[in-house]
Design a protein around this nucleic acid. Sequence first.
DNA 1: AAGTGGTCTAGACCACACT
DNA 2: GTGTGGTCTAGACCACTTC
Lengths: 258, 258
Amino acid sequence: MTSPESREPQPPASRRIAQALRSAIESGELRAGAKLPSERALAEQYGTARNTAREAVRLLSEQGLVKAEHGRGVFVREPQRLFRFGSDRYSLKNRESGLTPFRLEAKKQGKTARIDVVSIANEVPPADVAERLGVPGDVASVVHRENHYYADEEPVQIVSTYLRWSEAEGTLLTQPKTGPNGIYGRLEDLGHVMTTIRDEITARMPSPHETAVLGLSPGVPVLEVLHTSFDQDGEAFEVSRYVHRADVTGLKYDLPVQ
Amino acid sequence: MTSPESREPQPPASRRIAQALRSAIESGELRAGAKLPSERALAEQYGTARNTAREAVRLLSEQGLVKAEHGRGVFVREPQRLFRFGSDRYSLKNRESGLTPFRLEAKKQGKTARIDVVSIANEVPPADVAERLGVPGDVASVVHRENHYYADEEPVQIVSTYLRWSEAEGTLLTQPKTGPNGIYGRLEDLGHVMTTIRDEITARMPSPHETAVLGLSPGVPVLEVLHTSFDQDGEAFEVSRYVHRADVTGLKYDLPVQ
DNA sequence: AAGTGGTCTAGACCACACT
DNA sequence: GTGTGGTCTAGACCACTTC
């Protein structure tokens, strides 16, 4: 070696640009909603090709820090106030309001709620659902209800509810309008009183379909909740999969210890 | 117009390549762990420049479907078995085992657990912590303990625990070894019996620091749990922030209804 | 040495938003 | 029309892995 320790290996130009922009955002120099310099301007400023500046912006976008808008520019993402789904959403006392938990939360935030019934069908259940509901995973043993939830016309979550076909067939559970107190009311008619629930939570990047339905921009993950309701006999009688957009959604669980 | 409706606007080449690969993965043609064709091979196969094929791979990587390994190739990501953190992790009965919940779960999965105490310091709390702990957010009102958790030497989660400095000062709570039953044992000595807890859950993309500590590959989000412990008087006495890597971690909550 | 992904250049044209 | 991001080309060199 001619020069034993001449210099540290520098990070690539794209990362250095990204780091500079990140610092500007974190220091408040670039506030939420502010427009970043254009890719061409960044390229000139740092003496690189446009693609390199573009890569820097992509890194920030991947980290969920900024959002590119075609034809307009790249903007610092606004910190979103969260749509909170609390563990009390399963509480029976919410029944009295006559509103579903989602409508209640939307009202609390001064937003209008809309729920689309996308489909209701007799289907073969996904493996994880079949396992939890205790039904065969290779025949059409469930009714699958898919709903989309909107707040102020913004899509917030995708919900798939699965019920035993043997119980639901021929009842209001296979109809769009399920009657008083919704599906839980009808399930009580069938002798299932919700006694305990289990929520299994994961996070992941959305599928292209979820990206489209939820209108997600790159760098926004989803929260997936696989929910199981157990009745007074400890039997699972309903399984739902909630897919929330993580940029505007949070979950909250209050529980006693021991 | 010469040809009124000659053809549909095709999706860009990069998306078409990505979709073809996605289909191959979902159909099982490309199994978990399988190696994708090299970027140069894909480019030739589809008659595009290498950058275009590369963009296709990037799209899949962003969706968490594949993982690029420098010098080796791009591989279909293995479905990870989850490290499950259940709501019983706060249960007092776990005390009897003498193991912390993390060690218990690791043992259950036949993995070796390691917990690094990264730092213990008297600090100014983050705003969300100050709010929940009921302490001033502009002075060094808390002790902050940062731990890193490993399973089989793989980093799994980053935990920051915050306690009131006024209570912790001069006690074992500011020491790496906190004595029997850990910090909760010492907090009981101070008269705080954990009675209820609240977990607030969000998902987001990791910061560069978290990416480095957790060894995350692109397209893997993190689960953030802001945990608050309340004592017999309903007073918050401990707040912790758990940052889990979402590719190997899940949460599970069992709770009674009403 | 050969093959792979990682970064970069210096252009080009297209699609979209704004005025 | 002008400026913006979105996509693409046809190269190049570097860093890492494998043989």
